[in-house]
């Protein structure tokens, strides 16, 4: 075991700690404010504007979400469905795609890989607009005729939230780099034993891919939990298929109608607004605190490995 020299607290070190504590306090202040604010009633909230201090623990901002049949649980459910889908399909695509590019020798490999990689040269908005039109004018869907005219296609319907983004080039790239780091001997040994590719993927590679798959699952979960722009574009008109970020944002914007505030009085009920924000933010933060090492590895992985 390494013994650490205990450093004396010099002026320089005091400054370092002061900066770090001050900086992280500043970073945490809005979130702390929101958590504290969500636990206070309106009266307490108004009497301490710099940081709300709940005199008595006030949970009604949370319980009202359950008792008033607030759609937040529908939004959470929708978000979880998307998380499961966008982990499973892009995950399988990335594992097999990464394997093909790293391990299989075939003519045109570099060209195909460059073709996929080239998508990263363009900002997402370049394909969002035509993709939206494609989904909106999908023949036969949502009142459209065979030519894709007359209805709204898949807009404001589930397929629009599940069809795009199933091939994730970042993840294919990350998997390819991971396969490069695994010696080929394992696969060769399994081939000599008569295993086929699917068996090799299942029994040889899958256990070795566990760390990178965990990172992928974590990042994809956080990304989908917070996903807003695409759901806003294709599903803003149908609250029943809202994802959590979109639903909560709309609820915040339209005022906390649930608690009797008329729409348009945006966020007059700040404590309730903060409670909504806490519900939307806390799960990813807890996930991070629980699995911080994987996250850190993932952030580095995208830069150092790919």
């Amino acid at each position: 075991m390494q013994t650490k020299k205990k450093k004396p607290l010099t002026l320089g070190r005091a400054v370092i700690y002061a900066l770090l504590i001050g900086g992280s306090a500043l970073m945490s202040y809005p979130l702390l404010y929101a958590v504290m604010g969500s636990l206070t009633n309106m009266q307490d909230f108004l009497s301490s504007p710099l940081l709300p201090i709940p005199r008595t623990l006030y949970l009604e901002n949370y319980t009202v979400m359950v008792t008033a049949n607030f759609p937040i649980f529908t939004w959470i459910q929708n978000t979880l469905i998307r998380i499961a889908w966008y982990i499973t399909v892009p995950g399988i695509v990335a594992v097999f795609g990464g394997y093909a590019f790293a391990r299989l020798r075939f003519r045109g490999r570099e060209a195909v890989f460059t073709y996929l990689l080239s998508s990263m040269m363009l900002p997402g908005i370049v394909f969002w607009i035509p993709t939206y039109i494609m989904l909106a004018r999908f023949p036969g869907a949502g009142g459209n005729n065979w030519a894709g005219v007359g209805g709204s296609g898949f807009v404001n319907k589930w397929p629009a939230l599940l069809i795009p983004g199933l091939v994730n080039v970042y993840y294919i790239f990350l998997m390819r780099q991971t396969f490069y780091s695994i010696p080929e001997d394992f696969e060769e040994a399994a081939r000599i034993d008569g295993a086929n590719t699917l068996q090799i993927m299942r029994h040889v590679y899958l256990p070795m891919l566990k760390p990178v798959l965990t990172v992928m699952v974590l990042f994809q979960s956080v990304a989908m939990w917070n996903d807003y722009q695409w759901p806003l574009i294709v599903s803003v008109g149908n609250p029943r298929i809202h994802t959590l970020a979109l639903g909560v944002q709309r609820a915040l914007l339209s005022g906390a109608a649930l608690k009797g505030w008329p729409p348009g009085t945006a966020m007059t009920d700040y404590p309730f607004a903060f409670a909504l924000a806490v519900v939307a933010s806390l799960p990813t933060i807890l996930l991070f605190l629980w699995l911080q090492d994987y996250f850190v590895e993932g952030v580095q992985g995208f830069a150092l490995k790919g």
Binding site: L31, V222, L252, M267, F288
Partner: peptide
Amino acid sequence: GLYRALFYVPTLTAAAVTAQVAFAFIS
């Protein structure tokens, strides 16, 4: 690790939610 976590936590929030809530500060 704690400091690093405190600096990283805002990145984990939904921009839509925190930007909307940020309005509560500047309203």
